[in-house]
């Protein structure tokens, strides 16, 4: 990733999440609360550093994004209003919004199909995750 692009992405993450990463005091309460801590390669308390250092490539490619359960324990308990869960959410948005991303193939559809699922969802999923 080019430097400018990362910089822009870092800004985008701050904008989407509404998080000011400078407020973090590295207390670790997010990591102490996280039920997926052991599954994550980048730990919740480290998210902030990646955003601050504009190291977005590592964050976006991290397993952690997809291991986060969105249980919001970190958001609930963060004493500094940093709320790492929001950063994860924003990073996921960033990935999802990426043009040309290929997150869904037609071959996977049959196994994911659920009779309860409305048709529109499939169509919108294709629009969103395949460009």
């Amino acid at each position: 990733m080019s430097h400018d692009k990362t910089k822009k992405q870092a800004e985008l993450i701050r904008e989407i999440s509404g998080v000011n990463p400078y407020k973090c005091m590295k207390c670790g309460k997010c990591s102490a609360s996280c039920p997926s801590f052991n599954e994550m390669d980048i730990k919740p308390h480290q998210f902030v550093s990646y955003v601050l250092n504009d190291d977005l490539e590592a964050l976006v490619n991290s397993k952690s994004l997809w291991k986060c359960l969105s249980c919001f324990a970190c958001i609930e308990r963060c004493p500094r209003d940093v709320k790492p869960g929001k950063l994860v959410d924003a990073a996921r948005q960033l990935v999802v919004r990426e043009r040309g991303g290929d997150f869904l193939s037609a071959d996977e559809i049959p196994e994911k199909l659920d009779p309860e699922l409305p048709q529109q969802l499939l169509v919108s999923a294709f629009r969103r995750y395949r460009r």
Partner: peptide, 23 residues
């Protein structure tokens, strides 16, 4: 230990389970 505690959970046997982090 440098780090915080996320949760203290009282157990049925009366003990307390402490979940924290060592940063």
């Amino acid at each position: 230990i440098k780090g915080q505690v996320g949760k203290v959970a009282p157990q049925p046997d009366g003990s307390l389970l402490v979940q924290g982090v060592d940063l």
